[in-house]
Design a protein around this nucleic acid. Sequence first.
DNA 1: CGAACTTATTGATTCAAATCAATGAATAGT
DNA 2: ACTATTCATTGATTTGAATCAATAAGTTCG
Lengths: 193, 193
Amino acid sequence: MQLNQVRQFYEKFIPLSNEEWALLEPNFRMLRLSKGEKLHSEGDICSDVTFVNKGLMKCYHFIDGKEYIEAFFSQNEYCSDYSSFLLREPGKLFIEALEECELVLLDYNTVQMLYDKVKNFQKFGRLMAEFLFTQISIRNNALLFETPETRYKKFSKNRPDLLQRVPQYMIASYLGVTPEALSRIRKRLLITT
Amino acid sequence: MQLNQVRQFYEKFIPLSNEEWALLEPNFRMLRLSKGEKLHSEGDICSDVTFVNKGLMKCYHFIDGKEYIEAFFSQNEYCSDYSSFLLREPGKLFIEALEECELVLLDYNTVQMLYDKVKNFQKFGRLMAEFLFTQISIRNNALLFETPETRYKKFSKNRPDLLQRVPQYMIASYLGVTPEALSRIRKRLLITT
DNA sequence: CGAACTTATTGATTCAAATCAATGAATAGT
DNA sequence: ACTATTCATTGATTTGAATCAATAAGTTCG
């Protein structure tokens, strides 16, 4: 099991001695998903925090037959229905592989155990929660206060890789508009530019 | 300085021995604000986490001459521009007293110090961040997926106190609609009910 | 290769809520 | 008590994006 990416990820938040890593390492589980397979569905209580070792996941609400994409998670990102994981309540999200994926999981009980056993893991948990808070705040402010056009421009700039890997109607969903609207935005930008 | 409410608040998240409390207690600062005074303005780096001992605060964006209320914080709630506090970057929020307020503050450096010095404080920080994450998620899902009418109904049910204490145009702003729209929603509900 | 399906584009129409405008009710200040 | 101001309501109009509809371009796979 290739865990060097995971370790690097953790070490961006906290220092980890070899001894501490040795306590962490045996707890990870590897999961491979094919394109279209789901990690998590609406109604499930999210059982694990998940690190994307390889591939691309999408995370979405499904309401009245329509997908509303909340996030894409690619290599070296953390991906879970975090609210459900924390609250131990059935979640509202689906999480699905958009490509062949290699995931590294840590289940809820193990996480709780590690908070007690591994020095610094509590801090890691705090920093992760804080990080995710700031991420969700940024996204929400964008949806509330920026125009679809601005959101598209920023997305193109920040995630040019996803622009290639993800069909346009999913980008539209992520940006909070219909595919038709995004098509028109792109047309407008081509003319203007 | 009346800190029993603060202690109770902390103890909802973690156990605190008298010794630990003795380490915490001297670090709190009390701040009184009159109606209309601001705790925090756009562009400020949020310096403190703030507990509302008494009174009512509003937290809002101010864009194109208009207020967009993000949250109300009343007695026994935590109130800050948390993103700015965490990122150490200028914030986008204003936080202002809607009534005479009594606030209890803990500044950034002290918080960091306490993470190291007080057993369990790291855990408290994690639980707070997690709690705030779930709160923001709930609000955002409401704004994205519920109708203004549903949001108003839930708000009336969950915060009947605020319905009394806060003018209707501020409720409208919090619910993400104009005052005119909220007035019409209320009318509709009166007729239907 | 060509059929079947998926995705993207373009145009016409609809819709929910914002904006604009006016009036009435309530509240505050002198 | 009376004026000024703020707040809530109601009606008319506008608007940005969704929906509906049709076509074109691209992909997949038998």
